[in-house]
């Protein structure tokens, strides 16, 4: 297991280099002239152009630029925006908010999704099962911004239960509703995945063996059916963390959350390459680490997967 983990960590290196290089090259390549529109209506002054060319190594070819960027990154230097703000300080304020939001969403989708899946999967056809199937279908068919705007309008504006604009350093409670909105689609998938997986496993021979051993129904379901059924669910949840962070932009917009979504959005509009690349690089890292954790968890949940 130790060696497997090490090998997986090493495998992350080329993936990391490849993805970040592509992002770097794409963002700088967005327009032919990196200074277009940078200085309002006027042409940029030669002095400004000289400073920026120096700051972003624009005279080098793209590969060298990237390598220089990477070198700085390894020392923790994310570079500066065109206006001279340290990207790392932008990230330091925005990232924790989005991570918190994504984790709340993940928690909600895991807890509610799995519980709903278990209840409908174990009970079998009936009212609860139909309720879960219909409500998840409902959530799946609604775009996230609709769910978000409706909840904001109803809970925030009409009922006044939640604040329509989330404060700068949001608490867990502040993020509950946005987290629900962000996680709602995946929550529906988790519920259905858990349900299907349980129903499939219920007919498995080893479940019959567990019953034949005279174990209680609770133990048969909770120990013998659940663990096997949760393997695909855990995989889904792990890979979903990265997707949630990347997809947080809409939810953040709806609830005025100052996370990376708005930062990236503004960065792209203003062609502020350093910001965009910095944020995406971190997203890639989150994604890769989450995947690694899933793979390791997989080995813990299913001993047939052997990593040596």
């Amino acid at each position: 297991m130790g060696r497997y983990t090490l090998r997986r960590l090493l495998q992350l290196v080329p993936v990391f280099l490849g993805t970040t290089f592509i992002v770097y090259a794409l963002v700088w390549g967005l327009s032919d002239d990196p200074f277009a529109g940078k200085c309002g209506q006027r042409e940029c002054s030669p002095a400004y152009i000289a400073t920026m060319t120096e700051r972003y190594n624009l005279d080098d070819n793209i590969l060298v630029q990237y390598l220089k960027y990477l070198g700085a990154l390894l020392t923790g230097d994310f570079g500066q925006t065109f206006s001279g703000t340290e990207v790392s300080s932008l990230i330091a304020t925005a990232y924790p908010v989005t991570i918190r939001l994504a984790l709340v969403a993940l928690l909600i989708e895991a807890v509610i999704g799995i519980l709903a899946g278990i209840v409908s999967g174990v009970r079998g056809r009936g009212f609860v099962d139909s309720l879960v199937l219909v409500s998840t279908l409902f959530l799946i068919s609604l775009p996230v911004f609709v769910t978000g705007l409706v909840l904001k309008q109803v809970l925030g504006v009409e009922l006044g239960i939640i604040r329509t604009s989330v404060p700068n350093d949001p608490s867990f409670g502040d993020l509950l509703v946005p987290g629900f909105v962000l996680g709602s689609l995946s929550m529906a998938y988790v519920a259905r995945l858990t349900r299907t997986s349980l129903v499939e496993n219920a007919r498995a021979d080893f479940v019959r063996t567990a019953v034949a051993k005279g174990l209680t129904h609770r133990r048969v379901v909770g120990v013998h059916m659940l663990r096997n059924s949760l393997i695909p669910v855990v995989t889904f949840l792990g890979t979903d963390l990265g997707a949630l962070m990347g997809g947080a932009i809409v939810t953040e917009g709806v609830f005025n959350i100052r996370g990376i979504g708005g930062l990236v959005f503004r960065g792209i509009l203003q062609q502020d390459t350093a910001t965009v690349v910095g944020i995406v690089v971190l997203l890639v890292i989150v994604y890769l680490v989450a995947n690694l954790v899933v793979d390791l968890l997989y080995a813990v949940l299913d001993p047939r997967i052997r990593y040596d």
Binding site: A204, F206, K213, G214, V223
Partner: peptide, 25 residues
């Protein structure tokens, strides 16, 4: 009936591989 199972009557199956839970020792 549950209490009789295992205690008074037990059963073994044709395909032991699928009859044993793969994820527990």
């Amino acid at each position: 009936r549950r209490l009789l199972r295992g205690e008074s009557m037990a059963m073994i199956f044709q395909d032991a591989l699928s009859a044993l839970n793969p994820v527990y020792s």
